[in-house]
Simulated assay, not measured.
Amino acid sequence: MHLDSDDGPFLSVVIPVFNEQATVGQVIDRVLATPWPKEIVVVDDGSTDGTWEVLQKWQGKQGVRLFRLEKNQGKGAALRFGFSQVTGKIILVQDADLEYDPADYALLLEPILEGKADVVYGTRFHGGPRRVLYFWHAAANRFLTTVSNMITNLNLSDMEVGYKVFRREILQKIRLRSNRFAFEPEVTVKVAKLGCRIWEVPISYSGRTYAEGKKIRWWDGIAALSALLYFRFFD
């Protein structure tokens, strides 16, 4: 896969953001520091804390494109909108909270660049440094990943990971529906149904506490389980 192209950038980094004024600027700076030709599509999902005002610093600069949803709809909705705007050959999802480090892009992109993968997942459980946090979050993640593997016949280790990378053609074949964090199980079921070549690579992970702004809650786990079953058997 060529890094330069006359019909668009090589890499599109989509950043959904909701109320992350303290971290989103650092995330954009770190993404800009990565060496690949790219565009950065930032979708503000109706933030109310001043995030949109912080983002104005990057308006029109260095391939950064800003979009704002007037009403908060959830990560999945923000990603759907962002995916509709991208022009790159490879699409990478980047959270805005500093839990995931853009220094890992080389690892994430390598299987696609080598022509071995259509989709790449990071994994927080094999090899990369990670902050030690909540046992029950990890247990729930492993349970959801196990259920996901059972119904998709994949052997992922971290279905819920935020770092997911796609060849653009793959996302163009998928109709996504989920508005909130159920994006993760939905897209996993759908790339499995397509028979995509999926790779995992170890990434670093600096998780946050709830006091530091973590947003996912226990009911999102129940929604993820429901989404796995719905999108596997009924959608």
Rank of each mutant, 00 (worst) to 15 (best):
D29F: 00
D97W: 02
V191N: 09
V165T: 14
T87M: 03
V189R: 08
V24P: 02
R175Y: 00
Y105A: 04
S47L: 09
R208V: 00
L194W: 13
F166G: 11
P35D: 02
C196G: 01
K71F: 02
L55W: 08
P37N: 04
F231W: 15
G213D: 09
F166N: 06
E99M: 11
R208W: 04
V120R: 06
E70C: 00
K164N: 09
F143N: 06
T87F: 00
D44S: 02
E186P: 11
A77S: 15
S5D: 13
R124F: 01
G76T: 09
W52F: 14
R177F: 06
D44A: 01
V41M: 03
R80A: 08
Q172F: 00
I216D: 04
Y121T: 02
L133P: 00
R217P: 00
G76I: 07
E184F: 15
E186F: 06
G162D: 08
D7N: 13
L69Y: 00
G25Q: 00
A33E: 10
V43W: 06
K71T: 14
A192N: 07
Q26R: 13
M1C: 07
W52D: 08
D4A: 03
I170N: 03
G63H: 05
L171M: 12
E53N: 12
Y105T: 08
P185Q: 11
W218F: 14
R197S: 10
S226M: 12
F234W: 15
G213K: 11
Q62T: 07
S204M: 08
E99A: 12
I203P: 05
L154Y: 14
L171D: 03
A106F: 07
S204Q: 08
V201F: 05
F18S: 10
F83A: 03
N149Y: 07
G25D: 04
E169N: 11
A117H: 05
S5T: 03
W218E: 13
D4E: 12
N155F: 08
G82Q: 05
N72V: 05
C196A: 15
P9M: 04
L11G: 02
I174L: 15
K215R: 15
V189Q: 03
I222Q: 10
E186S: 10
L229G: 12
T34F: 01
L113N: 02
D104H: 10
R80L: 05
